[in-house]
Every structure is written in structure tokens, then in C-alpha cells.
Design a protein around this nucleic acid. Structure first.
Length: 221
DNA sequence: ACCCAGGGTCATA
DNA sequence: TATGACCATGGG
């Protein structure tokens, strides 16, 4: 019996409650955070964000105009900072184009997504995070936590599967509901931090039952 | 002294 | 198509 993602959502929501993601006040802050958090713990990203905020660079024009020498040390806590600087510049360059914001807000979401994916350094997860959390567009965000959780729940293929296949899996099984997408991804991350790679134990895990039905040894050792 | 984190790109086979 | 190397910091 396959796992029902919608059922998993309800269990997580009952357990952890609404998360009100993304942790960031403005769309621009969310966009910057989405790039800086690539393969990086959020704790490190929040330092970088705080540095930018303190330097009054957390705005499109200001950050786009800023010199590399001033930005690099500010974002260095987030790691990979030379790469991320280039990626941010590329993204800001696009956002500065007339009509870019308008397009991301109003174009069919797959076309807006394609625009972001065309930017060097913006992959599928970053693009989906930006669209869902900064622009309130209906697209499902897939990350390492998503793959790991559902692999443990019985969808073994999900760990290695292409991003688009995993995204399709969820969007085909969930109602097209922006608040649902928003909360679900947030809940998966929150849950994933508790049941991290080192501690997959299910002592008090709300998904222990689903896990036991599918994969007794993976999550419940 | 390890391993890991809310990825993405590039070089090889 | 599918691995592996690389990017770099801070926490466990």
C-alpha cells in the first residue's frame, strides 16, 4: 500500500502546526536566502542575511550596485561565497530587467519557472523556492529532506530520482493549493531536522505507523 | 578529526 | 545517463 502524501501532510500539520514560511520578511530577502541556502545550513545563511541587512544591502538596487569587495565578506558565513556571489549577480541582473517581476508574478507558472531555470546557478529547487515563497506561485519544492522522508516511507526510488520526477509525483497527488504547498515543504524540513541523517529514530515520531507499515527498519531502529 | 547541511555546475566515461 | 569533484563555512 503506497504512501499518501496528503495523509503525510495532515500528520505533520497536526504534529508541528503551521510554520508560516519562508523565514524572511520581504520577497527580496526570500530570494536572496534561496540562493544562499544552497547546500548550506540555515544558521549560516541567517548570519549572511543579517550582515546584508545591517549594511542596508537587502534591496534589489542596492545589492545589484554593490561592489564584490563589500558583498563577499558579508555573505561569506553562508559558504561557497564566490560561487553564490556570481549566482546572486546573475539573478539580480534578471530581476532588474523591466517586466521581470511582473512576469514572474503573472506568467503561467511553468514559463516563469523556465525563466528562472535559464539563469546560471538557479536550479530547480532554488527556482521553486523563489516562485512559491517569494511570489506565492503554485509549484512544489523538492529538497533532500523530501526525498529522504518519502524514501523512508516506502518510496525507495525517490532518493536518486530526477528532480522533475519527484516534483511531478507530489503535484499529481496533491490538490493545487498554494498554502498547502507552502506548509507542506516547511513541515518536511522541520520534521527532517528532527529526524536527521544521524538520528532517524522514531521515538515519538508521528509517522512511525506509516513507517512501520512500509519500512520498519529504515526509520524505526 | 571527522561528517553534515533546505544545490548546482562541470568534467569525465 | 550517471557518477565524482568542486565550491567553503559553522555546528555536532
Amino acid at each position: 500500500m503506497p504512501v499518501d502524501p496528503f495523509e503525510v501532510f495532515h500528520i505533520l500539520f497536526q504534529t508541528y502546526g503551521p510554520q508560516h514560511w519562508w523565514p524572511g520578511e520581504t520577497p527580496f530577502e526570500i530570494i536572496v536566502g534561496a540562493v544562499l541556502t544552497q547546500n548550506t545550513a540555515w544558521n549560516n545563511v541567517s548570519r549572511a542575511i543579517a550582515n546584508l541587512k545591517e549594511a542596508h544591502l537587502l534591496a534589489l538596487d542596492a545589492l545589484h550596485a554593490a561592489e564584490a569587495d563589500t558583498v563577499l565578506p558579508l555573505i561569506s558565513p553562508s559558504g561557497f561565497y564566490h560561487v553564490k556571489y556570481r549566482r546572486l549577480k546573475a539573478l539580480l541582473g534578471y530581476l532588474n530587467c523591466p517586466g521581470a517581476w511582473e512576469y514572474l508574478q503573472t506568467a503561467p507558472v511553468e514559463e516563469a519557472r523556465a525563466q528562472l531555470l535559464a539563469i546560471h546557478g538557479i536550479g530547480p529547487e532554488t527556482a521553486d523556492s523563489i516562485l512559491l515563497y517569494a511570489f506565492d506561485r503554485p509549484t512544489f519544492v523538492v529538497d533532500a529532506y523530501t526525498r529522504r522522508l518519502f524514501a523512508r516511507l516506502g518510496e525507495d526510488w525517490m532518493e536518486k530520482a530526477p528532480y522533475e520526477a519527484v516534483r511531478r509525483y507530489f503535484m499529481e497527488r496533491l490538490p493545487l493549493d498554494i498554502p498547502l504547498y507552502n506548509e507542506f515543504h516547511a513541515l518536511i524540513v522541520v520534521h527532517g531536522k528532527v529526524h536527521c541523517r544521524k538520528r532517524p529514530n522514531c521515538q515519538g515520531c508521528p509517522l512511525a505507523h506509516d513507517c512501520a507499515a512500509q519500512r520498519a527498519s529504515a526509520l524505526c531502529v
